[in-house]
């Protein structure tokens, strides 16, 4: 098996499984420990407050929207592009069709995927610069805060180069951009469960638990 086949085969499996199983384990671990030690959340559990908080914070209906409109807008755009492009880009769907699963679903237009990629990279750059320029955010930031933005942006940069042939004439990079793109995506997937990127799933549990804590006082937050 050559390196390309390894990256598009077994390594892809490893990446997806690490992401999926790792994410589920994070949740399982939270549930197992919280059952014992955060009894208050279970005693007062109420879907009403959990669903309300998730709706307010998944949609731009929360207080941060008016408090920090620029940051919040970029954060929403960042996350929407981050989820939509990899899942609904036609090239990715084609690969799923050709895979052993033969799964298929409708794609977004390639032009839109292009634009979303560019917008995503712009917001990623903005979030990175904000972290570097703002004295407050720089003070709070750890190495991984910077690194993870880069890790998340990398598949988008390489994906753009790959689909546009930007680097076609550039020797090693030009020849291997497809492998680099796959590797960057796999790296991100593998890192998700082990880093603060795990908020992709723990967000729901963190907000939910706090919503219950305030909900038992009679209001949604």
């Amino acid at each position: 098996m050559d390196f390309f086949s390894f990256v598009e085969g077994p390594l892809l499996w490893v990446a997806f499984l690490t992401f999926a199983i790792g994410g589920l384990l994070r949740v399982a671990l939270f549930l197992a420990i919280s059952r014992k030690k955060d009894a208050v959340v279970y005693q007062h559990f109420s879907w009403k407050y959990v669903l309300a908080t998730l709706a307010w914070w998944l949609l731009p209906l929360n207080k941060d929207v008016t408090k920090n409109p620029i940051f919040v807008t970029s954060a929403y755009v960042f996350h929407i592009c981050l989820i939509v492009v990899p899942i609904w880009y036609s090239g990715h769907i084609t690969l799923w069709e050709e895979s052993r699963f033969e799964w298929t679903w409708s794609a977004i237009p390639d032009g839109l995927a292009d634009w979303m990629t560019i917008v995503f990279l712009a917001t990623a750059l903005f979030l990175l610069l904000r972290r570097i320029i703002s004295a407050d955010i720089r003070f709070l930031s750890t190495f991984s805060d910077y690194l993870l933005i880069v890790v998340t942006a990398f598949p988008f940069i390489t994906g753009y180069f790959l689909t546009h042939g930007t680097l076609d004439g550039v020797g090693f990079l030009g020849h291997n951009i497809d492998i680099i793109h796959m590797l960057s995506g796999e790296l991100m997937l593998i890192l998700i469960p082990f880093t603060k990127l795990s908020h992709f799933i723990l967000f729901f549990f963190s907000r939910g638990a706090t919503a219950v804590e305030f909900g038992r006082r009679g209001y949604s937050m």
């Binding site: 549930l31 549990f205 963190s206």
Partner: peptide, 13 residues
């Protein structure tokens, strides 16, 4: 509790 550990892990600064 599990919440505390989760919060320390996910705070995005």
């Amino acid at each position: 509790g599990a919440r505390f550990k989760m919060w320390l892990n996910i705070c995005a600064s």
